[in-house]
Design a protein around this nucleic acid. Sequence first.
DNA 1: GCAATAGTGTCTTTTAGACACTATTTA
DNA 2: TAAATAGTGTCTAAAAGACACTATTGC
Lengths: 228, 228
Amino acid sequence: MPVPSPNVEGERFSVTVDIAAFTIVDGSLCVLVGRRREPPYKGRWALPGGPLGRGEDLEVAARRYLSAATATPGPAWLRQIGAYGSPRRDPRGRAVSISWLAVIGAQALSAEAVVRAVPVLEVVAGRFAFDHDVIIADAAQRLADELRTSNVATALCPDIFTIAQLREVYEIIWQTDLDPANFHRKVTAVGGFVEPTHLQTAGARGRPALLYRAGPTTSLSPPVPRPT
Amino acid sequence: MPVPSPNVEGERFSVTVDIAAFTIVDGSLCVLVGRRREPPYKGRWALPGGPLGRGEDLEVAARRYLSAATATPGPAWLRQIGAYGSPRRDPRGRAVSISWLAVIGAQALSAEAVVRAVPVLEVVAGRFAFDHDVIIADAAQRLADELRTSNVATALCPDIFTIAQLREVYEIIWQTDLDPANFHRKVTAVGGFVEPTHLQTAGARGRPALLYRAGPTTSLSPPVPRPT
DNA sequence: GCAATAGTGTCTTTTAGACACTATTTA
DNA sequence: TAAATAGTGTCTAAAAGACACTATTGC
């Protein structure tokens, strides 16, 4: 049933959501991208995303496109990073992208996923549709910032994980080594960040490690210190 | 000259920019608002803003509406805070607001300004058009965060100012007292944040204070510590 | 002189970081 | 046993904060 054009002043825009979704594969931070199947930018890499549905909320749309891209219904850590609306960003006409930073566990990428995970370090400007290279860079920067003060790192770990696994997430994203002893103390001292289970690892080389699960806290205080 | 509707998929949106512009008046943090002159929400308070011009960049539009509201061409500290696009936020139809945090010196509000500066502490939800009360709350929160790591506070001071004036900006926004001695050391130690002039205050009560001007640094390291 | 404000010195407390040391496993 | 990894203890360095103290003004 067609709806009459609403009576709002000003030019009309196409509005899409685009999601820079990160995951860790083989020790590398990767972003999910797919190939565009139609013009413009046909054949180029592009972020998952697309136009908002009728009456659809921004965040709901972002989750919908992300689920479609990964072919899994699972939840994801999601945060809006900004609106991109430069006048010439879409050759078809005026378009605004509401962009999101998302993070998913590596296991959340099913075999039916229509996107590939490409290492962020291999992302080069100019090979992407629209301004998606800029969005990826901004999102990666934001992700590194979020590690300090939010629980985003646990979203990149399995459901239960060791402190060493959590530390590896920080090390990969910050591209630096962290002291295992000090890191252990910091993260276990933040109330509600990680919760100990009564399980341990087994079969690995050294002393078995206690397994933890993500706690209820979304905002870390004090923050996890980032080396300079 | 009318332009044909561009060939982009999806529903068409009204896209506006809205600016939560803060200034300090009589020791209170205030936000600039005007009364709406037409429906919807006629007579309610609303943020400065409006539809993007043809081919106009988001930030350019934000600066244009801000200048129009304050009736001064002066520069302002500006940062995008996010996109608001809930399906029912505009009764006329689907609309997205790209919202900005702005900060201006109190002297930048000329007599011809079409907006009033209302203290943020007097802002109550439900008396504003659209979701502008939410935008104001988010912007105020963001402003408090920005004080730690950006040079935004100098934008709320006169061109030349004392460290005590700068401290008052922090105290007003953080709603807490800061130790004058420690604050002085912190801010003068951040390279490029404030630059000493060779001028001093005179005529006031105590010992004359050195006057400073804003330096070139936009990102403070180390950050100004915020008391818990 | 006194009260007020600017700015420096200095001590204490807290936090970050380096690294020794113990614990517990596999090979 | 040695090598590896988990986790604790402890010392050092840096940062934050409290507050004494000096400097310079108006009254």
